[in-house]
Simulated scan of single mutants.
Amino acid sequence: MWAKNARAAARRARENEELRAVGLTVPSAAGAMAEARQDELDAIDPGWCPAWYTGWQRCYRLVQDHIQAGGTLPTDAGDVLVQGEDLGRWVSTQRFGWEQLLPVQQWILENTLEITPAEEDERPVKRTQDTMWATNLTAARQFHAREGHLRVPRKHVEQLETEDALSDRQCGADGAAVVKLGTWLDNVRKRAAKLPEQRRADLNALGMRW
């Protein structure tokens, strides 16, 4: 009960500070915790009264418990699932979203779980519209070369094995890149009037049915 009341008092003090910062009148300081008292508690445990989403706290504790039980730090989605939480995905999200974390969250992750921000060379390369078009066009050409036409069923999925495609699309179970070719061609038809001339020509060369 004391801990619950203390957290409520700290939150009230923080809300009062935010009101003062924007020049608004604080309705009452009653029940708000003194700043000195907050500092004393922070010195004992920086996470005693976090201002962030409770789901973050839950996943943090689950990861901490997992490590204390002898497990290794999960780093990839699907590595460790506990109580319905994907701990690997959570850790990865913290690393790649480091700049969005509060300083105290960063401190906790670094000093208790040894989680560090992702390096630049770890960050996924953002796909441009041109690279996505090139990947889909490669799939269309592969289908045409094999089938002799481009009459692709709506639900057809083409698998590519080129290195470029592997970096642009989700990989299937056999390591091939998965391209939802039928869906893509349907979408292209719907925006045919806005396509650049070269893109229309590339598809026309494959016998595209508009």
Rank of each mutant, 00 (worst) to 15 (best):
V152H: 06
V63Q: 03
V157Q: 06
V82D: 03
C49K: 11
N136G: 09
V26F: 06
S28C: 08
E147V: 09
L62R: 07
P27E: 07
A10D: 08
H144E: 13
I67R: 02
W184R: 11
Q129L: 14
V157S: 11
E120R: 11
V63G: 01
A69K: 04
P117V: 01
T112A: 09
T162H: 10
D186Y: 12
Q57D: 09
T138S: 15
E35P: 09
D79W: 00
T183A: 15
L73A: 01
R123S: 08
Q57T: 09
E158G: 07
W98P: 01
A29W: 15
S167N: 08
S167Q: 13
D42W: 13
W107A: 02
A30L: 12
L166G: 15
L166Y: 03
H156I: 05
E15W: 00
L102I: 09
A173V: 12
L62Q: 11
I67V: 14
E85M: 04
R37Q: 14
G78M: 01
V179H: 03
L73F: 01
M132W: 14
R14T: 07
E114W: 13
A177L: 02
G78D: 04
N5Y: 14
A21V: 02
N204Y: 13
T25S: 14
E85L: 06
I44V: 15
G70R: 03
G88A: 01
P103L: 03
A77L: 08
D202V: 05
P27N: 03
L166P: 00
A201H: 01
V22F: 08
E15C: 06
R89L: 12
M132P: 08
K190T: 11
L160S: 03
N111S: 10
D65N: 13
V188Y: 07
G84C: 03
K126N: 05
V82M: 09
T93K: 12
V157C: 12
T25H: 04
D79Q: 01
A9P: 06
E18G: 06
Q105Y: 04
A140H: 02
R169K: 12
K4L: 14
K4G: 09
L101K: 08
E161S: 13
R200H: 07
T183V: 15
R89T: 10
G78E: 09
P117E: 08
G23E: 02
G175H: 07
E158S: 06
C59I: 08
E35R: 15
A8D: 14
V104R: 15
A118E: 04
T131R: 13
R12Y: 04
Q94W: 03
C49E: 10
C171V: 15
Q38V: 13
Y53E: 13
N204W: 11
V125C: 11
I115R: 02
P74A: 02
G172S: 04
M208P: 05
A177T: 00
D186M: 10
R123P: 06
L185Y: 10
G84D: 01
L81R: 05
E114H: 15
T72H: 11
R141W: 05
Q105R: 05
A139R: 00
Q57C: 08
F96T: 05
N16P: 10
A32P: 10
Q57F: 04
W48R: 05
H156V: 10
A8V: 10
T131C: 09
Q57H: 02
I115P: 01
T72S: 15
A3T: 14
P124Q: 02
